[in-house]
Design a protein around this nucleic acid. Structure first.
Lengths: 357, 357
DNA sequence: CTTAGCACTCAAGGATATGGAGTGCTAATA
DNA sequence: TATTAGCACTCCATATCCTTGAGTGCTAAG
């Protein structure tokens, strides 16, 4: 059944107010709002209806109303007014983000901190590869005194390396040979296709550098494996404790413990099938500990076949409008940042201004 | 003034009991202990003395005693009995640690988690370079379609790399030249000696690869800089909330916020001048928020001129004996782990057993 | 359909008793 | 002289009761 305009207005007001105050809101408080030209009795009737419909709840007979899960859901989906970020906010987000973010894992940590700061809630960030990674190019370098550097170019155009030290006298030629073999037989293969037989073949044709092969293969496997596993970071847990609904320490602890561990596995999965911003209101959470904790999350694009996710957790009574707005803005800005054809960074010597091209 | 043996025994008992129960301990509770063949009156007298000396405190007249900061100090320094880890504990720590820890930052995270788990308290881990790092070897590799990989071997025998993409047609020879120039003029220099004049010289003799130079230099600077800044991780904050002294949410929040931010700067500094395990009892902390929170920390050695630190924070009433024992054991095990002349890892193909050499 | 009015409900908060754990002191004891 | 039993006293924690006031639902009038 469709709600009357007035009912919607009342419901929205109740949610808005409850979000602000964390206290059950009574009919009188609603009448005090601007644009509410009805008596408290009328509002009371409307509220009684809304309660009967399951959108509001009463902690006890003589208390005001608080939104039910269904109420929040409706609020989030249809009722809430878009929150427009102020210039200050966009500016501060922009300037925070603008820094260089070299490595994905550091980026994840940083963004979690920023999001948490911007929302004043605990934040979770994740970054994961979409497709499977593979090595696009091998290189072995002799780096003096028995050290060899193995460099793997990956399919997403970044590189990883490992220093290998073996009590082994090798010459440039030996390494060239092994590189060639590796490049010929192990490039563009995802982890699953690194079969034992392929590896043995490499081993067989490695020549003098054969002792290197196991180390190399091991590193390749490890690298590809770690490329699949998502990078995650949590920040600002302590902020939860500032909120009245988490005065109950046990509850807070349960929630924090959960986002510390479990969420780390679940959230990316939840995000998979969604686009844009997603809101999970309290009881909609599967995890029991989160039954009265809401989660808001958004995807963003990192270049090179990677996807990112930012999310915050907070009380069911959270300022969904603000939080979603800020999260979306973050996601957008980050996507843009990574979409930029990574500018050749051209800073001059220390302290000098960067030259233009 | 030296305490009588009996006074020591009483004090130790009071602290032990208070650590266990978090409740003020009365004279009767002490007499109930084994090996305490005195009446409660005698104990009361001793406790009165200890209170007068400042080792115990009374929340109010008709309550038992709790240790004062001085009491804890004495307990930690002289009274507490060494706690011997059980086989189970050492085993579980060993097996947890035994995993490969490729990268320092991942290691730091992992160890923080483990320590927190082992002590059931929030844990902080840090790893920092002692001396200043410098580049020991440059290498530039052509990696197909306009991508160049810059590899820096660092003085501590690991390598970092960066993929550079420039709209620039370069040949192997050009890169060789630039590598040579870089190796000739910029190796073995700490960050401070990377003067503008040196850099300009490189620029001048870079030949066709000149446009690469600013990118390279920038990366070098950034790398050296990041080598100095310590790696830190915090884990298990939520565990604080399980403790009765942090039922006061505000207090818990303050403490958590502090270890999230400030500690990140201070702790390594504190550690600098200390060896072995260090205990900071509540009010000995400089930070106001930590005035009734204790910190226990220990150093350990990571190879390659790096130092690590593990620490936990908890209530002043924390089981110092257990915590210091566990931390020390961790530190020892980690030091050993890193001291091992990094075994050439020789795993075979996926799933097979590693071959022996 | 809206609203004024009224009786009713119920949690929150303050005041007041009560119980009990623990103390300090004194006098008796070994 | 060191220890201990005994006793009066203190004071927090807990339970109980009461009051207050915000908020409701219902009814009847506008």
């Amino acid at each position: 059944m469709e709600l009357s305009e007035r009912k919607k207005k009342v419901l929205r007001s109740v949610v808005d107010l409850y979000i602000r105050t964390a206290e059950p809101v009574g009919s009188k408080a609603i009448t005090a709002l601007p644009d509410m030209n009805y008596s408290s009795a009328t509002i009371r009737n409307e509220m009684a209806d809304l309660t009967a419909m399951g959108y509001l709840e009463q902690p006890h007979t003589s208390a005001g109303r608080i939104p039910s899960a269904a109420g929040y859901r409706l609020y989030v989906d249809e009722l809430m007014l878009d929150y427009r970020l102020s210039m200050d906010e966009t500016k501060s987000i922009n300037s925070a983000i603008e820094e260089k973010m070299q490595r994905v894992d550091k980026m994840v940590e940083k963004v979690a901190k920023l999001v948490s700061q911007a929302t004043n809630l605990p934040a979770i960030t994740a970054a994961a590869r979409c497709g499977s990674a593979c090595v696009s190019h091998f290189e072995l370098i002799l780096a003096g005194k028995g050290s060899i550097v193995l460099v793997l170019m990956l399919s997403d155009d970044h590189a990883v390396n490992k220093v290998i030290k073996l009590p082994l006298e090798l010459e440039d030629g030996d390494l060239k040979l092994l590189s060639a073999v590796l490049n010929a037989s192990l490039t563009e293969l995802p982890l699953e296709e690194l079969t034992a037989s392929r590896m043995e073949k490499v081993m067989a044709s490695a020549g003098k550098a054969a002792p290197l092969v196991p180390v190399v293969l091991d590193f390749v496997q490890e690298t590809l494996k770690s490329q699949c596993s998502p990078n995650m970071a949590v920040a600002g847990q302590a902020r939860l404790l500032g909120l009245p609904e988490y005065r109950d320490v046990d509850k807070a602890q349960r929630v924090l413990a959960t986002i510390d561990e479990e969420a780390l596995c679940n959230l990316p999965a939840v995000m998979e099938n969604t686009n844009g911003t997603r809101v999970i209101v309290g009881p909609e959470n599967v995890a029991d500990e989160l039954k009265d904790t809401s989660v808001v999350m958004t995807k963003f694009d990192i270049g090179e076949g990677m996807q990112g996710m930012i999310g915050v957790v907070g009380p069911t009574r959270m300022d969904y409008a603000k939080v979603t707005a800020r999260l979306s803005y973050f996601a957008e800005s980050l996507s843009k940042l990574f979409a930029k054809p990574e500018q050749p960074q051209l800073p001059g010597a220390a302290g000098e201004e960067p030259k233009n091209e």
